[in-house]
Design a protein around this nucleic acid. Structure first.
Lengths: 242, 242
DNA sequence: TCACTGACCGCATTGGTCATCTGGTCAGTT
DNA sequence: AACTGACCAGATGACCAATGCGGTCAGTGA
């Protein structure tokens, strides 16, 4: 994170209230139905005030989604600190999906909804967010785990990544829209994913506790990088910085 | 197949011409842009003639898509006859995707496009078609292969099915819309899928040739069932039978 | 007799219009 | 200096007429 760019809401409580109002109203009526005037009124500020903190409506919502993703990254980080064995693919993958399943903003991000593309016009922003999608995170982490023997290395990395990505996309979509599953419904998709990832990625023998701890540390560092780059997106959207 | 219900185009060459025109025009301009009048004109028949063979525009296109799927099933059947080792999951799964990748109608079916839902209003039809989607076919075949030892049985079948379905959905979608892959592109997704399915489903030792042959036979029978049920859809859509 | 046709009908969809509303600005207020 | 809300140009969507559609059926001719 570093001391450089802080979240706008931490600098001003008013900005925080605006974000909260925007979040609530957008969840209720949809992002492109809610108006800046509504948001400002709900936050108890004037309409112009919103534009003191963000240059455009787009920037406001980019910042909002970024906040959600950052909170999610922190959440995941916390889980890691509590239990480093979460780096094991069979635990990592289900955790990625489960922690994103509940949050509409993250789910939205994952399915690459067209509505999101309509909102975020700057390709750079979309790319930065795509970096934090479960599929991309899985891929990013895969290389690290593979180097350290937490993931089998008897097959080329690119194909392994592609397969993992496909698996996560598939599970994610089937969770979001059960009709894609063709009527098939199981009680515990998490377990199914864990088993699949285990067979797909994990070597015969579990790695030692030491290796696991080191891998977890490396993965945490990677999380930090993704975190910081997202933070840059938020900073870029803040008024007065561009 | 049986002698009972034959494709409408085999009964009347005129119906065949109508289907051909419908196919060509719909591929060029989209299903819901093309008009019955255009189709009739292109086929060199009167507009009313179309309604001698199909009750509605919807029935016409249901029949058309069914024809495509039936042709695909025949194609796959032929491949099976030529090489029974195609039942091996690592060869079966890539074949399912590859043979459906080129055909817009089948691809459409696979992605469960909303445009298709707008066209096919009868849920019964949609269900019948869903039965023939790659994911569903994979699932249908999975049980057969498992019983015979071509697929490992150390994990519960429902979760195995779910995982396979997710994997196929994921690979299929990433093939169709590469942006879902998050910029990741590999030369040979087929191989990646083959490897993934191998790890996911296949036992340590390959089954004997005899077992493979028997499994292939059973799978072919299953294909025949799916074939026949689709044929029933076509027959139901034909005018004068309802 | 009957396979076939195309003029015809009611209705859904379209394109065009225009009043309203929205994102964004800025002179003014506190 | 922080903040506000009246104001503006352009986007939006409600509305309506006109077109074009799916589907019908009386008629045609082989």
């Amino acid at each position: 994170m570093g001391p450089m760019s802080r979240l706008i809401e931490q600098a001003s409580p008013k900005a925080g209230r605006i974000l909260d109002s925007a979040r609530e109203l957008a969840l209720r009526h949809g992002v492109h139905k809610v108006t800046i005037a509504e948001i400002a009124a709900a936050a108890g500020v004037g309409k112009g005030t919103v534009y003191l903190y963000w240059e455009t409506k787009e920037d406001l919502f980019v910042g909002l989604i970024a906040r959600e993703v950052l909170a999610w990254l922190d959440d995941v980080g916390g889980r890691f600190d509590a239990d480093r064995s979460l780096v094991l693919p069979r635990r990592f993958a289900p955790m990625l999906l489960r922690t994103t399943a509940g949050n509409p903003w993250l789910r939205w991000l994952r399915s690459d909804d067209s509505a999101l593309a309509r909102l975020m016009h700057r390709p750079e922003d979309r790319e930065r967010f795509a970096e934090a999608s479960p599929g991309a995170m899985g891929s990013a982490v895969l290389g690290i785990l593979r180097e350290r023997g937490v993931v089998r290395d008897d097959l080329p990395l690119p194909r392994q990544m592609y397969a993992l990505h496909a698996l996560l996309v598939g599970f994610g979509l089937m969770m979001d829209q059960p009709d894609l599953a063709g009527g098939m419904n199981i009680a515990d998709p998490d377990v199914a994913l864990a088993e699949a990832v285990h067979l797909l990625l994990e070597p015969e023998r579990d790695p030692s506790a030491k290796v696991v701890a080191e891998a977890a540390e490396a993965v945490r560092v990677r999380f930090g990088e993704i975190h910081d780059r997202l933070l840059a997106v938020v900073a870029a959207g803040a008024a007065g910085t561009r």
